[in-house]
Every structure is written in structure tokens, then in C-alpha cells.
Design a protein around this nucleic acid. Structure first.
Lengths: 361, 361
DNA sequence: CTGAAAGCGCTAACAT
DNA sequence: ATGTTAGCGCTTTCAG
């Protein structure tokens, strides 16, 4: 079908070794030899087989990316960054959309190993907890995004989730809200607890009782947000401000609030998390905690490739220490910031009292 | 590093051929032999190298997917479907996000060839026009999504763009609008003209002058929609209904309308195209033409794998005809449907007159 | 400067 | 039922 290096060699009247060298730009070759090879390759539309090369070189120049759910707009932005940087470094990307299914996660882990990708970016929150055994001794380099593998020395990049929760709550508190509800996500989302902890911390910082926040857990999507909000107002009818685990849940919450005949932010303020691209276009525009999604992805790949380079160096004997930076658990925490938009405002009570500062209540 | 088939063979005290057979489940093997092999493989955590296998079998069980822009929410939905079906058939997915950059498109085409993927799904509208020479004789099976490669026999799946444009316009016309504007996309978007043609057709069907629609072209994103709307109202200030090339542009248009102090749909109705997941959550919820995005992806892969199967059959001599279904250009057209939401309503004039039927104007 | 040859890890005849 | 062998397409010593 496609021409092989042998075809080119024959056509150019040289050996395959020479073709390989010329095409790799390595080793001197007489000008005319080089020209003949190049010519032959062009004529035959020769494209070296990456698979043969991979077998020989024991590197595929491919990275695996496992994500939770590509339909959550957070991930396309992440994928975009990961792919961009991977490409910059000459790596292709094998995309694995886990669909929040542990079996599928596991099967992807195997697939990536089988395929001998050079490294994996795992952006599945909670995968660490679910496949700990695998992560404890992964057959290939791994870097984690917004996840932690307890006690395991994988580089990991995450947003400052605690601070995010804190900022979200502080914003609401500053606005005068005193009854805050949190729509959090289930145990499979490893970052959820940190966000809740941040909310509590904000209360504490102001001498308020952190136990006063109502917490309900739901699925981390629009539907989950709708359902969770219903439960929240049932539990705590006087809630005036809600903080969602992510923007999708926040959107769901806004729908539910409106469906119940109340308004956002008139009756209830809502704050999301992620600052997904569409957050600015919802009704009303969503106040949210912005993650530096692109940076998350960029860093992840940067880390991974630098580790691959290290690994290569070690293999070549440049680093006799044996283990790569043994024990150096590098977790990079990226700052988050509040983006105030239309979905948050003063609580009804404050509004009734006047247009003054936050309620002293 | 990782164990090879040789390691397993040695450990089990058999030949590599036997290991291969046992693991493949082919050919009879004595029960105890099989057991020993399985045991050895397990102990060594043996994972067959897909790259070695690919080299031998001349198939990578990998598909390439080239898309325009993963940050347009249309694509994640497509990717999702493509990946799901690919996976069902045992294929992995190499994701190529072209970022609307022709050079990048070209380089991905080469990359996929080099990597010897078994087939490519091209969902980059306009790539056909840009890389026609390549598409004319692609070194591997190709299937097109929402694109056409003029005169080339590649299977292609597309939405009924003309009908979509028609339905959008019909909707507005039925509502009583008479001054309709279209926000279309530039030449790189091969499906744009069909949508515009559909709009014109709707006018014709009602005996109206198709030349009455104002058309402005912009970039197919939110920003492009905002800008385009500005130009549209400058050109045709009496426009009461606008149809956008896609939902993102429609969202941009709504923003621009509001920024100009007018309302949607009070002053101007907006209709999008795609019915992206977020369309239901915008402010106001977007009336749009729904594409069966998942089906588009599903069909594309289905087609591709069936073609791969055919190809294999031919290679095996089952089909002596030489060319695969030579000349059979199979383009599948999927129906679209209007989803009426809050962004469209009667034009101001009709409203002024009363709550009766469409204006008899 | 160039060629011969080995080998990456696997599968598939072809023996036995 | 199992082993031997060749070979997929490439890179890379090692000779010359």
C-alpha cells in the first residue's frame, strides 16, 4: 500500500540505513546521495511508519488523556490546552472519555498501557481513589489534574479548591447573606470536599458558625443541580445564597429556583465553580469561581514531558540515582478567582431594609 | 521495563507462539498449558504491546478524528459519540483539534497517516475544499461529517442544512416577521451557504422576495455573532428576526441586541443552529435548529468501520472487484428540527396590533 | 560516507 | 498441541 523505507532505498539506489539517516537529518551524506533519497521519498509519497519507529525506539510520542466527561464544558477547555501543548512537544493525543464510569476508566488505563503511550494525564477526579492499586505502580508516567492520589508521588496540578470555596462564601457573606447552602457532588469527585471546607472556613473567619451551612449532594450536572436545589430549599427554606460544586449544577439550581417561581438573584443568589465559557451567557450571567483551566492543562503536559525527558536522561545513565526525584511529591496549586456576574446580589432581607451596606444582622 | 511475550513464554516454559495463541484464545491448547501461560502472564502483569501487534497486523485499531474547534460545544458532543462508537468497535481515538487553522489541518492529516490509523473522521467543514488534493487520493479511509469533498467518493454524513435554514426562516415568517437577517459564516464553513439557501427557499415558498433578506458574514463564535449583528442592524435597521449560522453566533447576537438597549425577542427574535447543550440555558433560552449531533458521529464511525471491514474482505480476496463499491458516493443526510424556545416571538409590529394571528401586514 | 545486519515485540504459516 | 521461523518497517551499531 504505502511505500516503505525499503522502496525508497531501492528507488534511490542506496541502503535503508542511508534513507533513514538522510530523512532524520543525521549523519553526513553526500549532497547528491541526499538529493536522490529526498527525491525518491517525494516521488513515492513516502511517510515513515510511526508504528515501526515506535517499536524500534520504544516511544510512541503519544500521550493519553483521561477525562471525566467531555460534555461538561470544563473538559473541552482542558483538552484544548492539553492537546496544544502536547502538539508543541511533538506528541499526539489519545482521548479517553471515561463518562464517569469506573469500569471504563480501568479499561482505558489498560488501553493506554497496551498502546505504550509515553505518559498519561489523568483528569478524572476520584480516579485516584478508585484505582489506587494501579496508580501505586503505574507502568508509565502519570500526572494528575485536580485529583490527588493519597500518598503517591505523582506530580499533580490542581486549583486551589479550598480557597475557591472560601471566596465564593466570602462573596455571599459580604453581600449580606447569612443562610448559605452548598450543592456539592458525591464521593467520586475528589475535589468537592475541599470546596465545602473552604465555604466553612469563610464562615469561621467571620466568627460565624460553620455548621450553619446546609449541604446537599447531587450529581454534578444541570439535572443534578436542579434536583439538589429542591432538596436544599426543602431542608433549609430560608437559604438566600447557594454555592454549587460546578457551573453546570449552578445552572440547574437557577432553573429550579425559577421553576419554583422565585428569582435569581432577587430571592436566591447562586455562585458556580469553574467559570466555564458559557457562564457569561446564562440567564442571568453566572457569578462563579474561575479556574485557570488552560493553565491546568498546560502545566500538566509540561510536567509530564519534562518528566519524560528526565526519564530518558536516567535511562541514558545521566542520573545514577535510580529513581526519579524519589520522594519529591510535586503538587502545583493554581489560584482561583471570583468572577462576579449577575447571579449574585444582596439577599431579600438586606434589600428590604434599604440600599445601605450589608445587613448588620 | 514491561514484560514481553518472550518473558511470559520463558516463565511458562513454552514458545512465544503458544503464548500468543493462548492469549488470543485461538487454536486448541492443552488445559494445563493454557493455565501455565495465563498464570505466567498474570504474574508478570503482561500487557501485549499494541505497537508490535500493529506492525505485524498492519492495523492500529485506532481512528483519527479531526475537528474544527473543540471549544465550540457542538464538537464535544460529536467527539463523545465518535469515541463511544469507536470504542464499541475496539478502536481508540486520536483527537486532532484543528483550531480552524489550515496548516494545522494539513499537519494532522500527515500525522494520522504516519501513525497509520485505520481511518479518519473529518469533521472540519471546509477541509475538503482546502485539502482537495489530499482528499482526492487519501492514503487511508476517510469519512466526512458535515462537509463535502466535491466529486470525491468519500462517504459523508451531514445534517439537512438547507432544510434547517428553511425551517428557521419559516418559523420567523410564521411568527409574522418580514425583515429577516442572516448571520452567516465565511467560506471556510462549507455548510453555511446551504443554510442561507434554505432561508431563501422559505421566502420563495411563500411568494416573498428572497432578496429581501440581509446577509452579513462573521466569525462563527460568540464574538463574531456580536460583531455581525452590529453590521446587520446598521445595514438593515428594520430587521426583526435574525438567523445565525450557529448557536454561538446566536448568543453573540443576543448580547449585541441587548447591549444596544433592545430586547430579545421583544425587538428582535433570534434563531440559532445546532441546538448545542447550553442552548436551553441561555438568556433567553435559544430557539434553534437541532442537529442530531450524536447520530452524525455515530453514523460516521459506523460507516468507517464497515468500510474497514469491507476493505479487509477485499484484501482477503473476497471481493474481486478491486475498488470498494467504486463510484458509490454515499452521502447520508440527517433531518433537523426546529426547537422553539424563548428567543423568538412575534415582531414588534404584530405585537402592537394585537394578540391576534400573524400580522396580515 | 555508506552498507550489512540485528532486533524492537508480536503473529502466522509451516513444520513436527 | 506446540515449536521454529520469518517478517511487519524502522533505527542503529558496527564494518568497511
Amino acid at each position: 500500500m504505502t511505500a516503505t523505507i525499503g522502496d525508497v532505498a531501492r528507488r534511490a539506489g542506496v541502503s535503508t540505513a542511508t534513507v533513514s539517516r538522510v530523512l532524520a537529518g543525521l549523519g553526513g551524506a553526500r549532497a547528491d546521495t541526499r538529493a536522490r533519497v529526498l527525491e525518491a521519498a517525494r516521488e513515492l509519497d513516502y511517510r515513515p511508519s510511526a508504528v515501526a519507529r515506535s517499536l524500534k525506539l520504544r516511544t510512541t510520542k503519544t500521550l493519553g488523556l483521561i477525562i471525566t466527561d467531555i460534555e461538561n464544558p470544563f473538559f473541552p477547555q482542558l483538552v484544548r490546552a492539553v492537546e496544544d501543548v502536547a502538539r508543541e512537544h511533538g506528541f499526539a493525543l489519545l482521548l479517553c472519555n471515561a463518562t464517569d464510569d469506573p469500569d471504563r476508566e480501568a479499561s482505558y488505563l489498560d488501553l493506554l498501557v497496551d498502546r505504550r503511550v509515553d505518559g498519561v494525564v489523568i483528569a478524572v477526579s476520584g480516579l485516584g481513589a478508585r484505582h489506587g492499586e494501579w496508580l501505586a505502580e503505574p507502568p508509565l508516567p502519570v500526572v494528575l489534574v485536580n485529583t490527588v492520589a493519597p500518598g503517591l508521588p505523582h506530580p499533580s496540578i490542581a486549583s486551589d479548591n479550598v480557597d475557591g470555596g472560601r471566596q465564593a462564601a466570602a462573596h455571599l457573606l459580604d453581600l449580606g447573606h447569612r443562610r448559605i447552602g452548598v450543592l456539592t457532588a458525591g464521593a467520586r469527585n475528589a475535589d468537592a470536599p475541599a470546596r465545602v471546607a473552604g465555604v466553612r472556613r469563610a464562615l469561621e473567619e467571620r466568627g460565624l458558625d460553620p455548621a450553619a451551612v446546609s449541604i446537599v449532594v447531587g450529581e454534578p450536572g444541570v439535572g443534578g443541580g436542579e434536583a439538589a436545589l429542591g432538596r436544599l430549599v426543602a431542608d433549609a427554606p430560608d437559604t438566600t445564597g447557594v454555592i454549587a460544586y460546578n457551573d453546570l449544577m449552578a445552572i440547574g439550581a437557577m432553573r429550579a429556583i425559577r421553576a419554583a417561581g422565585r428569582t435569581v438573584p432577587g430571592d436566591i443568589s447562586v455562585v458556580g465553580f469553574d467559570d466555564v465559557a458559557i457562564a457569561a451567557y446564562t440567564d442571568p450571567p453566572l457569578t462563579t469561581i474561575a479556574q485557570a483551566i488552560g493553565d491546568l492543562g498546560r502545566w500538566a503536559v509540561e510536567r509530564l514531558v519534562e518528566r519524560l525527558a528526565d526519564g530518558a536522561a536516567i535511562k541514558d545513565g545521566h542520573d545514577p540515582s535510580g529513581r526519579t526525584l524519589a520522594g519529591t511529591v510535586t503538587v502545583t496549586v493554581l489560584p482561583v478567582r471570583l468572577v462576579a456576574r449577575g447571579s449574585s446580589g444582596p439577599p431579600p432581607a438586606a434589600r428590604d431594609h434599604a440600599a445601605g451596606g450589608p445587613s448588620d444582622q
